[in-house]
Design a binder for these strands. Structure first.
Lengths: 232, 232
DNA sequence: GCGGGCAGTTGACATTTATCAAGTGAACGC
DNA sequence: GCGTTCACTTGATAAATGTCAACTGCCCGC
């Protein structure tokens, strides 16, 4: 499994403290594959045969019910996804599709479960990762239940601004219709929401956002670390 | 810490496989307390000093933002809550209040973290519990984003029916205004939603629900294991 | 350069949901 | 028993959000 990204994977929080022997064993059992854009990697309900690690590209996690579909999250390199299904040996709750050409490492779930039975450091790291994910979803639920779509968009923009370095101008990293789905609204509504934020100093030109009045926008958005701090 | 419920706590999935010595140490460091109804046990944003275990009674987990409040979940005996904050040593994302007189065991978070560094079985159990919780929240998010309030209520009733043994009649175990908040709507809307389900064979008399036409209700609700199976 | 094709936008309208205000009904205390 | 309280309900109305259809602008291939 020769791969220039191997050391970066090793450095992932999940594997960083794992014993070398265990890590090598996992890697040996795994394989890496390149996928074209718009390929459905996994479908919700399928058994979770592999832990996935996105090495390059991007992946959309989404769910469907009754002919409706919603984007649950975006995975960006380098990180794992569907860890919870893997450790519980339970069916996927979400489907995943590549958004662009993507390189993905697949580790058989069975091997992951074995490794974490034998390696306390690895188990500890999984706990950390799962707790992290859990708290992320809780924050998302609070966002959905406590805020209107306009407020969700405003706070999303502020988060994206920070992720992009904090400057007044930045670029949306998702198609607007995906963004709409992630934020729990229709694309039409997102268009209107962007216009609705104009009075608070938000300028939109394609995927380019410029915040001309930071204070106004923050005053409206009222960002809160217990909802909007998406990393810690 | 003499307590008649100790063996039940020991039997919790979380502690079942833990080494006796470690368990005893946790118990010795912990204490049990009785709380009256409507007491706020923890406030979101506070440091997570204790892992809580609800022994008897019931607890509401809720969150607030900008003068709005929403019920996130109900804790029922015997189970732990705010495990994720404890293992991450991060601030609580939700507040908790007793709904009735409740007996709660408090284990210092520091001791939990130590125990799970030293006890592989315990770490394994925490992974399981966190993965479980994570999947629960994901299901809840799907419910919120993919369904209308009427559909959420219909599926909630079907779940509650199963929890109550599967008979045509059963009792709601929460105040209707809490139920409304859990389902992400106002109480007024919940009242109307109950009326909206009458054509599908749902009769409501106070907290007593009777499903007179199971097939019709299920046809409308379209329950899905990937959203509605709240235990596995 | 022309002509799709497609993401995004806009407008008109329908539906869903929330808000406000008033009412009902059962539980409870004096 | 009577009045108070409180959860819940109901109705009128407003606000938020979704739907449908048409339109715009831009990329891209021929």
């Amino acid at each position: 499994m020769p791969d220039s990204h191997l050391s970066e994977i090793r450095d992932l929080h999940l594997f960083a403290d794992m014993q070398e022997a265990h890590f090598e064993r996992l890697i040996r059992a795994s394989y890496v594959q390149n996928f074209p854009p718009q390929i459905e990697l996994i479908s919700e309900g399928d058994p979770s045969d592999f832990l996935h690690i996105l090495v390059t590209g991007s992946v959309d996690l989404f769910s469907s019910w009754n002919d409706r579909e919603t984007s649950m999250a975006t995975v960006r390199p380098i990180s794992t996804f569907i860890l919870a299904a893997t450790v519980k040996d339970a069916p996927y709750l979400m489907s995943a599709r590549t958004m662009e050409k993507s390189r993905i490492m697949l580790i058989p779930s069975q091997d992951v479960r074995e490794a974490f039975s034998n390696d306390g450091q690895f188990a500890r790291a999984i706990v950390d990762e799962l707790a992290q994910c859990y708290r992320g979803v809780i924050k998302n639920t609070k966002d959905l239940k406590l805020r209107t779509s306009l407020e969700r968009l405003a706070n999303y923009l502020l988060r994206q601004q920070i992720r992009s370095g904090g400057g007044a101008s930045f670029t949306l990293d998702a198609e607007k219709r995906r963004l709409a789905s992630v934020l729990g609204m229709t694309s039409e509504n997102l268009s209107r929401a962007f216009k609705g934020l104009r009075p608070y100093g938000v300028q939109v030109k394609g995927a380019e956002i410029t915040i001309t009045n930071q204070a106004d926008l923050e005053g409206f958005a009222k960002p809160n670390p217990l909802i909007d701090n998406r990393s810690p």
